[in-house]
């Protein structure tokens, strides 16, 4: 089944950009079949969510590029198909494809590893799985620092960068969409925050939360245009927020160091070790969430800005 899907996926990569949506859902359905672990589903769901949106915004780029040869040389359509496919293939392997996906993939893999201890702990005590968070912590730390590194790389690596483009983009005719989306966005954002804070109760955590939160703004950007989205959440914030998230994470670690405990030992945060663990996990998750949110949105801004330039 997996192979079949992989085959389908390959075919569609060349043929229909559209079916990417279906694939993420299909993959999720597969995860449901394969894994009976709820946390894994959230991972899959979030992976699907991010990858879909980012892939699509990437595909806007690739598709533009694919179309250009089609327009400039009016060679027979078959040749265009082949060159188009080749172009897409080339672009997909090139940094543009890798970049936006890297955080997602880099994240998903380690997080699965982290989940090991989490799952061991969860069935026992749902509310406080703190002991089992230990392995998680060290791993989480590396993940976040890695993300931060990637972020810096990404922000510098995309030359166009997320710069502010004042003015509205001209998609003002979708009245229904605007009203409904405006109505829904607060709920999406709040859902993101919910996932953020309930990481230690159920499925969720900083990474997913950041992604969902960013998704809310991506939705806003899609419907109301780049200009409005950038006015509501200026890209300059994102740089700072990304840094702030990492600082928060690091700060927790440094604090515990200062308190005479090993780096990122949360027991230093409060007198009661359990309480300290809890607080530490929350803070660290918040750091992850903030970083991921700002980076995802920054990537999206960078991609959409580039798209408008082409």
């Amino acid at each position: 089944m997996l192979v079949a899907i992989a085959a389908i996926r390959l075919r569609d990569l060349f043929a229909v950009a559209m079916l990417f949506g279906i694939f993420s859902f299909l993959v999720a359905a597969l995860f449901m079949d394969l894994d009976a672990v709820d946390v894994a589903f959230t991972e899959a769901a979030v992976g699907a969510g991010v990858t879909t949106v980012l892939l699509l915004s990437t595909l806007r780029l690739t598709n533009r590029w694919e179309r250009r040869p089609g327009h400039s040389r009016l060679v027979p359509l078959l040749v265009v198909t082949i060159t188009g496919a080749a172009l897409v293939y080339g672009i997909l392997d090139a940094p543009f494809f890798g970049d936006p996906n890297a955080p997602a993939h880099q994240h998903v893999a380690p997080r699965y590893i982290e989940q090991g201890p989490q799952e061991v702990g969860m069935p026992n005590i749902v509310t406080a799985v703190l002991a089992s968070y230990r392995g998680y912590d060290t791993f989480g730390e590396t993940v976040v620092i890695y993300t931060a590194g990637l972020a810096v790389l990404l922000l510098l690596g995309i030359p166009d960068g997320p710069n502010i483009r004042p003015g509205r983009s001209a998609i003002g005719d979708q009245l229904v969409l605007r009203v409904v989306v405006k109505f829904l966005i607060p709920f999406v954002l709040l859902y993101g925050l919910y996932v953020q804070w309930h990481g230690d109760f159920g499925a969720g955590g900083g990474f997913q939360a950041g992604v969902i939160f960013a998704t809310g703004f991506v939705l806003y950007d899609l419907v109301f245009g780049d200009g409005d989205a950038r006015m509501a959440v200026p890209p300059a914030w994102l740089h700072r927020l990304a840094a702030l998230g990492v600082l928060l994470y690091g700060g927790v670690g440094v604090y515990s160091l200062l308190a005479g405990k090993p780096f990122l030992d949360y027991t230093a945060l409060a007198h009661d070790p359990v309480h300290g663990q809890h607080l530490g996990v929350l803070l660290v998750e918040l750091g992850v969430g903030i970083t991921v949110f700002s980076i995802v949105l920054a990537i999206f801004y960078a991609l959409s800005g580039r798209r408008r330039q082409v």
């Binding site: 949506g21 993420s24 859902f25 999720a28 709820d38 589903f41 959230t42 769901a45 979030v46 699907a48 969510g49 879909t52 949106v53 699509l56 915004s57 969409l177 989306v181 829904l184 999406v188 859902y191 996932v195 159920g202 499925a203 969720g204 997913q208 969902i212 998704t215 991506v218 939705l219 899609l222 419907v223």
Partner: peptide, 19 residues
């Protein structure tokens, strides 16, 4: 918490369609 996942999917689905 499968319902959370389902809700998340409903959101992702909509955003994806719009995108």
């Amino acid at each position: 918490s499968h319902l959370d996942v389902a809700l998340l999917y409903a959101m992702v689905n909509f955003v994806g369609t719009i995108a």
